[in-house]
Amino acid sequence: MMMRYSFLSLVRNAGSSRALTTNIRFTQSQDHAVSPASTNVADHNETLGNKGIGGWQIMTAVCVTRHPVLCPPLSPMEHTYSQHLQKLDVEQSLQCDFELQVIEDNAKKLLGVEEEVELLEEEAKEKRSALEQLDVWKQEQEEFEKERVYEVKASGGSVGSSLSRQVVLVQKYKLGSQDMWLLPQGPWKPGETLRQTSERVVAECCDPSLGVRIMGNAPVGFYKYKYPKEMRSQGYIGAKVFFYRGQVGYRVRRSLPLLQLASKKEQQWLTHEQLSEKLKQNYVKAITQFLIDDS
């Protein structure tokens, strides 16, 4: 199964030039690595095959998410209900050995039966009363709990932040003189399918070890915006953005070094609340339509 998956992903990476059913000619254009900080949204002067697409530039953005790594705590309602179930469970069960032993111990105490036989240390362990045994177990559990780890040493905004929430990758872009946080995006180039554009965008902005996987060939969302006046000289009125969904590979959620990976400059992983603070309201509205809320 695993072999098959890795093989398939190999095939996909090597040959994303899947035979196109339409007459689009595909050109490999992976070498256009643009550093995000300097990326200008309308930097690409390549003329569109049919520039007349209403004067709009076609863009593809990828909504790269990392799903929760740790279980979120129970909500108050869930907590009450689980306690209720536990109560019912105990009531309907038979008594276990431990409970019988507690009863037995109590009876012995009442009757005043005392064993005065000197016990060896090993035997004493077996002859411990039930409640003493319980204390020992509790101590053992506490020591075990101490070892458990719930946090990753990682700076805020990296892949390993907010472990019990879903986080989304955003990147800083310049739009004219303005700085804007957007989902990682890139312009479509003639000859590509939108899916291929999205894969290129992921390759440019994400570390390959994250194993980001694009879900599906069809875009999941749409957003359009106009460029500021000074940028319209290039012939575009604005951009039509098609969103794709991308998921960080499950290996990342299992591996500490990958979770500790610092995010690139001008990039951040944000929870849904942080998104709505940092991004433009209209943009957030477009995103939240397809972003599946985890809280």
Binding site: M1, R4, Y5, L8, S9, V11, R12, R18, L20, T21, T22, N23, I24, I58, H67, P68, V69, L70, C71, P72, E147, R148, V149, Y150, E151, V152, L163, S164, W188, T193, L194, R195, M215, G216, N217, A218, P219, Y250, R253, R254, S255, L256, L259
Partner: peptide, 28 residues
Amino acid sequence: SLWLEAIQEDQFALPFRSYGPLSSLPIA
């Protein structure tokens, strides 16, 4: 033409693997 490409079946979508969250992180 882009639309036609977009509505094609994703041949690599399956097999898909996903795992639920953990109760605590692996110990280094």
